Amino acid sequence: MRYFETSAPAAFAELLGRQAEVGRPVTYVVGNPFLPWVVDVAAEAGVPAAVLWVQSCAVLSLYYHYARGLVEFPPEDDTDARVVLPGLPPLSVADVPSFLPPSNPYKMIADAILGQFRNVDKAAWLFVNSFTELERDVLAALPGVTPRRRS
């Protein structure tokens, strides 16, 4: 993953440039949480980008609040502690995505996922896998997460 993170952005930028040079400019790009650099490369090339979040809005909210330092999760051994986020019921430590607690052995994956939230404001769209009727409260609590509209 480290090699991919260091070599793929330049290769992707080159691909975008080559497509434009031959008269087939890329009109938009869709990235995902495991490729957070896609949004940065697209923005540098002037190509609108979207983020495709394949998990629920509830999980998006958890990662977003954690990545932006808006919530601190309690220690893993405190089974009585609760995490409180807008639009969600109080959550136990066991409800928190397994990539976030300090005991997570896959730090690179967590860094990649959290990296998406460092640049999500550069995206023109944020596509989320959701069922509105089931996540109405979470959706209502996330207006600040949605990227700004571009004309």
Rank of each mutant, 00 (worst) to 15 (best):
residue 1 M to E: 13
residue 2 R to S: 15
residue 2 R to G: 15
residue 4 F to Q: 03
residue 5 E to C: 14
residue 5 E to F: 14
residue 7 S to I: 04
residue 7 S to N: 05
residue 9 P to D: 06
residue 11 A to P: 01
residue 11 A to N: 14
residue 13 A to H: 04
residue 13 A to F: 02
residue 14 E to W: 09
residue 16 L to T: 05
residue 16 L to F: 02
residue 16 L to H: 07
residue 18 R to T: 09
residue 18 R to D: 09
residue 21 E to R: 13
residue 22 V to N: 09
residue 22 V to K: 11
residue 24 R to C: 07
residue 24 R to Y: 04
residue 25 P to I: 01
residue 26 V to R: 01
residue 27 T to I: 12
residue 28 Y to F: 15
residue 28 Y to H: 14
residue 29 V to R: 04
residue 30 V to L: 15
residue 31 G to D: 06
residue 34 F to H: 06
residue 35 L to R: 00
residue 35 L to M: 12
residue 35 L to G: 00
residue 36 P to E: 07
residue 39 V to D: 04
residue 40 D to I: 08
residue 40 D to P: 04
residue 42 A to Y: 10
residue 42 A to R: 12
residue 42 A to S: 14
residue 43 A to S: 15
residue 43 A to R: 15
residue 43 A to Y: 08
residue 45 A to Y: 03
residue 48 P to Q: 08
residue 49 A to K: 01
residue 50 A to C: 09
residue 50 A to W: 13
residue 52 L to G: 02
residue 53 W to V: 02
residue 56 S to V: 07
residue 57 C to P: 04
residue 58 A to Y: 00
residue 60 L to T: 01
residue 63 Y to D: 09
residue 64 Y to F: 12
residue 64 Y to A: 04
residue 66 Y to W: 08
residue 67 A to H: 02
residue 67 A to E: 02
residue 70 L to V: 01
residue 74 P to K: 11
residue 75 P to D: 09
residue 75 P to Y: 10
residue 76 E to L: 13
residue 78 D to R: 02
residue 80 D to V: 05
residue 81 A to C: 10
residue 81 A to I: 07
residue 84 V to D: 04
residue 89 P to E: 06
residue 90 P to A: 08
residue 93 V to C: 06
residue 93 V to I: 11
residue 93 V to T: 13
residue 95 D to Y: 13
residue 96 V to P: 01
residue 99 F to S: 01
residue 100 L to N: 00
residue 101 P to F: 05
residue 102 P to M: 02
residue 106 Y to D: 14
residue 107 K to H: 12
residue 107 K to S: 11
residue 108 M to A: 11
residue 109 I to A: 08
residue 109 I to G: 03
residue 110 A to M: 06
residue 115 G to M: 09
residue 116 Q to P: 00
residue 119 N to S: 09
residue 120 V to W: 01
residue 121 D to W: 08
residue 123 A to M: 09
residue 124 A to S: 14
residue 125 W to L: 00
residue 129 N to T: 00
residue 131 F to P: 05
residue 132 T to P: 07
residue 133 E to H: 11
residue 135 E to S: 03
residue 136 R to L: 14
residue 137 D to W: 05
residue 138 V to E: 07
residue 139 L to C: 05
residue 141 A to S: 15
residue 141 A to N: 14
residue 145 V to G: 05
residue 145 V to E: 09
residue 149 R to F: 11
residue 150 R to D: 10
residue 151 S to I: 05
